[in-house]
Design a protein around this nucleic acid. Sequence first.
DNA 1: GCGGGGTGTTCACGTTCGCGAAACAACGGT
DNA 2: ACCGTTGTTTCGCGAACGTGAACACCCCGC
Lengths: 159, 159
Amino acid sequence: MVRWPAEAERLDHLRAAGRARLLLVEGDGPPPIAVDRLEDWIRLPAPDLDLRARVDRLARAAVEAALEQPLVDDDGLLRYSQQWVSLPPVEARLAAALVDRFGSVVSRDALTRAAWSDGQAPGRNALDVHMSRLRRRIESMGLLITTVRSRGYLLAVAH
Amino acid sequence: MVRWPAEAERLDHLRAAGRARLLLVEGDGPPPIAVDRLEDWIRLPAPDLDLRARVDRLARAAVEAALEQPLVDDDGLLRYSQQWVSLPPVEARLAAALVDRFGSVVSRDALTRAAWSDGQAPGRNALDVHMSRLRRRIESMGLLITTVRSRGYLLAVAH
DNA sequence: GCGGGGTGTTCACGTTCGCGAAACAACGGT
DNA sequence: ACCGTTGTTTCGCGAACGTGAACACCCCGC
């Protein structure tokens, strides 16, 4: 819940973090333009009933969004739809990079940078090997890494 | 725009038809639970500004949903109605040119320029071959490339 | 210290794939 | 019937990619 336009800066944070938010519009100003479906607004003062209805709807949308989105936590666990696998450090960083851009292509270069932050890439196909092993670990969870030739890799749900 | 709960029956029709709808909630009753993102509600009486904001947002959502416009992203993926295929570089550039002018004719010359930035195709037949291959890749997504003889090609939805 | 499992890297191969050339078939207008 | 245009197939080359196997390493328990 964000007061608007008073807490505009906080709103930016929530948007960037991909969290659901309900804007409490104060004054006569126009409501802001929602950037995605995890955002809604209501003009104050408002009946408790109405406020609750909007919060509920947002909560449902957030659950929906979270369910289809995998997550790599700080302990190197890849979680997805009530399942998880533990990943070795390098693969965890690779998975994190893929999850970050879930559904779109991540270049080999970006993956290399994510996996070996120290800078230099080990060998020319070290990445291939790690990706190969990562594939096996996650396939049992219904996730799939697709190769996009000469562009990179893409993490998606297997179907 | 549907008055609620007065026009409940009309609402069912609109929902079934997949059309966007804004419920004008009258009285003290609870707002209905939205079934999808093409539905929103507002409690009357409401400032004109607020009403317009909700209508606009719905309109944008409707355009988004109805705009069955394919898209070639920066990674060479052709996306269309929750599907995607990865395209090799040359075909990706061809597809981008076609998508740019989705539904109208793109000349062979323009396609050649798009595919080979230097302006000239490697062979006189190269464009045909790539178009042929592009056809195969996109047909599984319900897209179709039609030849307009001596004019060029046209990308459209297959039906 | 010693062994072992987990981890990271390299090597060596095989496979797939993009791309263009050539050849041929099909089509359409004149 | 002819000719220019377009569609498809086949082939070869080179590059990108996948994966098994082997090796090097490190941390940990005994």
